[in-house]
């Protein structure tokens, strides 16, 4: 019995709603307060304790100052489970609407989780050689939150897609792995070739990296202190020497990070990944694209 406790807020929230409906119905019989005001109050109270309603305004100001951010429709979309099944492993997909071209391409995608302790979860850097700026990864969610993918085009325009996720505790719940074992096996990598989902986008692959990605918010079971943050902060993927994908990572990426990405249509040469963590350790590995494509 644990997943119930990882998603416990969901159950709690359902109970809260049920209670709120009963109380609201009763209250309305005795009062003239408009029901819409109550509904609004209930919705705002609905999120987890400590919910910061101004979070995005603050983050937006820091990242983009007064630049215009347009609705991402037709450029970029974001898919996430409304109700996360495991707050430490929330699968999300950021999808570009059309393939990268030399004339017009998505240069970077910033992934923001409003209510997480460190809201910028990752920045993905892309090039025309990337094929398609579609990224799939797994994140930790600490509290009910909006998440956002902000695409920056090669001409500097900004587009944003937003989703709301219900989950809690993903940053602070320790994984099951023992700390020493998790550090000892860090750096092992797997690359899987995947079928492409879009015409003209080229090949797709999944990079899996063994790493505890300690968030700095998990407790060390022996000392009772917090385990210092220790996470993958940089991933560089190249194909035949050409830059395909760069990732600036943060504590919100799940343990054993997984990144699905496109690598274009050139099947000669190697795909190489160089991964660095916050302790300065570097792990690297290469896979021939031709061999991957046969799998």
């Amino acid at each position: 019995m644990l997943s119930g406790w990882r998603q416990a807020l969901i159950t709690g929230e359902a109970a809260f709603k049920a209670a709120a409906v009963v109380l609201l119905t009763a209250f309305m019989a005795f009062s003239t307060v408009p029901s819409s005001a109550w509904a609004e109050e209930t919705r705002r109270d609905d999120v987890s304790p400590g919910f910061n309603h101004d979070a995005w305004n603050d983050i937006r100001g820091m990242l983009y100052e007064d630049q215009v951010i347009k609705d991402g429709k037709g450029v970029i979309s974001l898919t996430a489970p409304y109700r996360a099944e495991d707050a430490a492993i929330v699968p999300i997909t950021i999808a570009a609407a059309k393939p990268q071209t030399k004339g017009e391409f998505i240069e970077s995608i910033t992934l923001v989780i409003d209510q997480n302790p460190s809201p910028v979860a990752a920045v993905f850097h892309l090039t025309p050689d990337s094929g398609l700026a579609t990224i799939d990864t797994r994140i930790r969610i600490n509290a009910f939150t909006d998440i956002r993918a902000i695409a920056k085009m090669n001409d500097g325009r900004l587009f944003m897609a937003t989703e709301f996720i219900k989950a809690a505790g993903g940053c602070s719940t320790p994984g099951l792995s023992e700390m020493d074992e998790a550090i000892a096996r860090a750096g092992k990598m797997k690359m899987k070739f995947l079928a492409s989902d879009m015409e003209g986008a080229g090949g797709q692959a999944q990079l899996l990296i063994r790493h505890p990605n300690f968030s700095g918010l998990q407790m060390d079971q022996i000392s009772g202190d917090f385990i210092p943050a220790h996470y993958v902060d940089s991933i560089e993927v190249t194909r035949g020497g050409a830059k395909i994908l760069g990732v600036e990572g943060d504590i919100s990426l799940s343990e054993d990070p997984s990144i699905r990405f496109y690598f274009g249509d050139d099947t000669s040469g190697d795909i190489s990944a160089v991964v660095t963590d916050t302790h300065g350790k570097t792990f690297s590995k290469s896979w021939p694209v031709s061999k991957l494509a046969k799998n």
């Binding site: 406790w5 416990a8 807020l9 159950t11 709690g12 304790p49 505790g169 602070s172 719940t173 320790p174 023992e178 998990q218 407790m219 060390d220 079971q221 022996i222 009772g224």
Partner: peptide
């Protein structure tokens, strides 16, 4: 391994219990 897990998760579990 129980003491380590209790120390690691205890506060989280207690907070959740109070919410529930």
């Amino acid at each position: 391994k129980l003491p380590r897990q209790m120390a690691a998760r205890g506060d989280f579990y207690l907070g959740r219990l109070k919410e529930l």
